[in-house]
Design a protein around this nucleic acid. Structure first.
Length: 489
RNA sequence: GGCCCCUUAGCCAAGCGGUAAGGCAGCGGAUUGCAAAUCCGCCAUCCCCGGUUCAAAUCCGGGAGGGGCCUCCA
């Protein structure tokens, strides 16, 4: 089966074929760095990180670019409020953004170009657009002339005339048409500015993405992604100016992710209901957040709430307990397993591995179908169930377990790991139980477990249960397993 | 006012014409001294009304409810 991708431009799924065989260029719109990142900012990066992982798994060499908008009205206003410079604010907030990405295991971004470092490219592009009649300077500004672009509106499937009807576009006597948008804004006193043939100023919002994406990925590249709310005007304008400039197709596949919802409204700075990533991560492990974002298909809105996060946290427990189980069987951590990337069928002997192989196939089919991570996550749960069942049936934790059974079990776990890596999940121990590494706590726990064991041996269950009950009150759960008693927080 | 999209069990969520994945919660059972963990089983006919089809959650038309965009927004 081949990878199929939904394209906003055509409104349908089509088989994915890159411009250049074996390579993929992917550009995703990043944040305007004027405030700390909220969770909504993480949706795109996490999803496209998974997209890159999967494309890489399929053998493509992927270049993943996320831009940083480091000059803009909001930055100027915010910097003034804080009594700092735009540059300093941008640097600080970019660091925050990068830190959030790192914690959510978004590891695939190759380049993060800054708008302010590409003024030259933008000027060159504007010059070209003015020369070919698609843009015009006006009173120190430069505008894109929408009326000169025959297929303007094709991304959003809108007729420009209809849009203008009830539109509340910025009125300016410098524009020829109300729908025209600024490529360059003439400097006002006190604002950061750069020299240009049209006088000092700064770039408009859309031009940076055209200039930078084409610089790093070429005039025609494969995937352009971003939030659904960026479709218009940002992406429509980006597309219009780029294709007017090069006379070539800009991005071949436009992918738009659904927005995060708080209750029944989207989460956004403009709505004022944002949840800071840094704050959130104080309460929930990053993997819980990543898992939540990948549990839904990327084009659907994602329900966000504290209850939901708590539920995800609970549902993740099954995986984490299984990893502990694996460690009991093999003595090594699940996280150290090397799971090679294998194309095609995995050779399988025996019903168990055939079953796991079948699930692996289903997982891959989900990903092939427009990166259906939600379906893929479901398959992961099914694998977990099969793995546990096999472990129960064959008693792989017992010393008497057959080496053959243990080997099959281990191979099954490797396949599970191979799949989970594609989603960027379970890469590191997520619940290194608080205090679990602490020698003193470990020693004290062993003491209590030993005392309880003695009480139980003497059939003093009342005392044994009291020890367990009081530990439960402290948030410690005991598990009596064949090989002895374990505990976790 | 215009343009899009969504509606699947108590909650979250796959599904893209062939008779409803998965998770959380709940219930019953195995296991356990009792638990925990794990396993087994149970738990929906897909917002409503029509239509197309041998066959529809899936296609078409209408209705109801919710959301997004048209303005900065991931």
């Amino acid at each position: 089966m081949a990878l199929r991708v939904y394209n906003t431009l055509t409104k349908e799924k089509a088989e994915f074929t890159p411009v250049e065989k074996g390579k993929v260029g992917m550009y995703v719109c990043g944040p305007t760095v004027y405030k700390p990142s909220h969770i909504g900012h993480m949706v795109g990066p996490v999803i496209f990180d998974a997209v890159k992982r999967y494309l890489t798994y399929l053998g493509y060499q992927v270049t993943f670019v996320v831009n940083i908008t480091d000059v803009d009205d909001k930055l100027i206003v915010r910097a003034k409020e804080l009594g700092t410079t735009v540059k300093e604010l941008a640097e600080k907030m970019t660091a925050d953004y990068c830190d959030c990405l790192k914690r959510l295991n978004v590891a695939g971004i190759d380049l993060m170009p800054r708008a302010t470092e590409h003024i030259g490219e933008m000027i060159e592009m504007m010059r070209g657009l003015i020369d070919n009649g698609h843009a015009y300077p006006s009173g120190g500004d430069v505008y894109f002339d929408v009326s000169k672009d025959a297929d303007y509106g094709k991304l959003c499937h809108r007729d420009p005339e209809q849009m203008e009807a009830g539109a509340r576009v910025e009125i300016s006597d410098r524009k020829r048409n109300p729908g025209d948008f600024a490529l360059w804004k003439g400097a006002k006193p006190g604002e950061p500015s750069w020299d240009s043939p049209w006088g000092p100023g700064r770039p408009g919002w859309h031009i940076e993405c055209s200039a930078m994406s084409m610089k790093y990925l070429g005039k025609t590249f494969d995937i352009h992604g971003g939030g659904l709310d960026l479709q218009f005007p940002h992406h429509e304008n980006e597309l219009a100016q780029s294709e007017s400039y090069t006379n070539q197709i800009f991005a071949r596949y436009w992918m738009h992710n659904g927005l995060l919802k708080m209750g029944n409204a989207k989460m956004a700075g403009s709505v004022g209901n944002v949840v800071n990533v840094a704050d959130l991560l104080k309460k929930y492990h990053p993997e819980t957040v990543r898992f939540l974002l990948l549990s839904t298909h990327y084009r659907s809105p994602i329900e966000y709430s504290d209850d939901r996060l708590a539920e995800v946290r609970r549902s993740l427990d099954g995986f984490y307990r299984f990893f502990e189980r694996y460690q009991r069987v093999n003595g090594a951590s699940f996280h150290q397993i090397e799971a090679p990337v294998r194309q095609g069928e995995v050779p399988a002997d025996g019903d168990f591995l055939k079953e796991i192989g079948g699930l692996r196939k289903r997982f891959l089919e989900c990903m092939d179908d427009d990166f259906n991570t939600g379906g893929a996550v479901g398959v992961l749960y099914e694998m977990l169930n099969k793995l546990n069942r096999f472990a129960d049936d064959k008693k792989v934790e017992d010393a008497s377990a057959k080496p053959q059974a243990k080997a099959e079990f281990t191979e099954g776990v490797r396949i599970f790991k191979e799949m989970s890596q594609i989603l960027g999940l379970f890469q590191e121990p997520a619940v290194a139980a608080k205090g679990g590494d602490d020698q003193l706590v470990g020693g004290l726990m062993q003491l209590l477990i030993d005392l309880r064991a003695e009480a139980r041996k003497a059939k003093n269950f009342a005392l044994g249960d009291q020890i367990r009950k009081r530990l439960t009150e402290q948030g410690v759960t005991l598990e009596d397993r064949p090989g002895g008693t374990g505990w976790r927080l």
